Amino acid sequence: MTGDLNSALPVALYKTTAFLASAKQMQAMDTATGQVTATIKPQGTPVDPGEFNTDPATPPLLVTTQGTATVLTSFVVKQAATGTQASHTVVEVHATNADTGKVMWRLTLRPPQWDGSSLDMRAAVVGADGDSAVIRVSTNDGYHAAAYGLDLNSPRQVWSTDKVRVDAVADGAVVGAVFSDDLGTVQRPAGFDVATGKRLWLGERSYDVKTSVAGQQLIRVQGADYDSEENYDRLVESRTNRVRQTVLTDIDDAECTYDGQSTLVCHGTSGASGLDASNGEVLWQLPDEQADRIAPEVTTAWHGRVYGTANNSPIALDARTGKDMPNPRTTPLLVNESVGIALDDSGLVAYPTIS
């Protein structure tokens, strides 16, 4: 895998299997043995992401379709010319049975040509809700992006929209930024219905809009107002844009991680905090001088636990209270009920989860 730790690992966990994605293939690995049990490759020729594209792969997405655990992943490929039909750069979406590693179906999406820049593309499975999933296709320079809505039962493409970069799905809505100019520098945060692609709301003109999942119904929206140039950082309802909370501003360079259950954990260079993922209410904050507690460096949060390091040792916190829990053996970057994925001098290492 290529990339760095400034973005999510291109890995999805299902039971004791890790699905590792790259620009050219996805591998299913048994985390107990390290054995590769399946390799999924696109039918077209994978497009070289380029030497300066340090993060071409994005995490696969685990969903349930027709009662089957399914892994969705996407590849940017070159579709060969046939007869009088010219070759094209397209996106292949693959659905793989998570238990067997067998490909269930494939879909091909044909993005806009974008003035010849389509050879410099990346694709990502943004999220899913019910029987619908959303794929993002964008150029590496950030000037162009489009979104595609899929019906996972058919399977088929249901809708598409150009000049929008989507990043987060919650409560039947996908949220991102609509481009207001040709270069994508002037943007508006916006929400769309996952199943139909209908626009649900449109925010103010902005710069540098970023969106991420903050709860089952909440999205974190960051940006800078185009007119006043003032930064904003808030939690909004995904379907209405109703502001529920302003993210804590006393945490420098705050990143927020949803634990997939009930808590949003925000962390940065000056501290960490836990927010209720249903309404944005602050539950706890660290450091706490009165209790003589320091703030950890958070690596991930999952189902009620926060993982990270403090005093050069792995730590775990209760996500709802911020209280210390028994220390884990290592500091995972990704975790589920069966396995934790960590980084050491030898690379990525899998550890069994101990309850």
Rank of each mutant, 00 (worst) to 15 (best):
K102W: 01
K102G: 12
M104Q: 14
W105L: 01
R106V: 11
R106C: 08
L107E: 15
L107D: 14
P112T: 05
W114L: 06
D115F: 10
D115C: 06
D115M: 11
G116A: 06
G116M: 05
G116T: 10
G116Y: 06
G116E: 10
S117A: 14
S117D: 13
S117P: 01
L119M: 07
L119H: 11
L119I: 06
D120Q: 10
D120H: 09
D120W: 05
D120E: 14
D120A: 12
M121W: 06
M121T: 07
A123S: 15
A124G: 13
A124T: 10
V125Y: 08
V125S: 05
G127V: 02
A128W: 03
A128E: 13
A128I: 08
A128P: 07
D129H: 09
D131A: 13
S132F: 12
A133T: 12
A133C: 08
V134M: 04
V134I: 12
V134P: 01
V134A: 09
I135D: 04
I135P: 01
I135V: 15
R136H: 04
V137E: 11
S138R: 08
T139A: 10
N140S: 15
N140G: 10
N140W: 14
D141T: 10
D141V: 07
G142I: 02
G142D: 09
Y143N: 13
Y143P: 00
Y143K: 11
A145V: 09
A145Q: 08
A146H: 09
A147P: 08
G149Q: 13
D151A: 08
D151S: 07
D151P: 00
L152R: 05
N153L: 03
R156G: 08
Q157H: 00
V158G: 01
W159T: 09
W159R: 13
S160C: 00
T161R: 12
T161G: 01
D162L: 04
D162N: 15
R165A: 04
R165W: 10
V166K: 01
A168K: 02
V169Q: 02
V169C: 02
A170S: 14
A170W: 05
A170D: 13
G172R: 04
A173R: 06
A173D: 12
A173C: 13
V174C: 00
V174A: 02
V175P: 00
G176P: 03
A177Y: 02
A177P: 05
V178Y: 11
V178W: 07
F179K: 02
L183S: 11
L183F: 14
L183M: 13
G184N: 08
G184R: 03
G184H: 06
G184W: 07
G184K: 02
T185N: 07
T185W: 01
Q187H: 07
R188P: 02
R188T: 11
R188K: 15
R188H: 15
R188Q: 15
P189S: 12
P189Y: 04
A190Q: 06
G191N: 08
F192Y: 15
F192C: 05
F192Q: 01
F192G: 02
D193P: 03
V194A: 05
V194F: 00
T196L: 03
G197I: 05
K198V: 10
K198Y: 01
K198W: 00
L200G: 11
W201T: 10
E204Q: 14
R205C: 03
S206L: 09
S206M: 06
S206W: 11
D208F: 12
V209N: 01
V209S: 00
T211G: 03
S212N: 07
S212G: 14
V213D: 05
A214G: 05
A214T: 01
G215A: 10
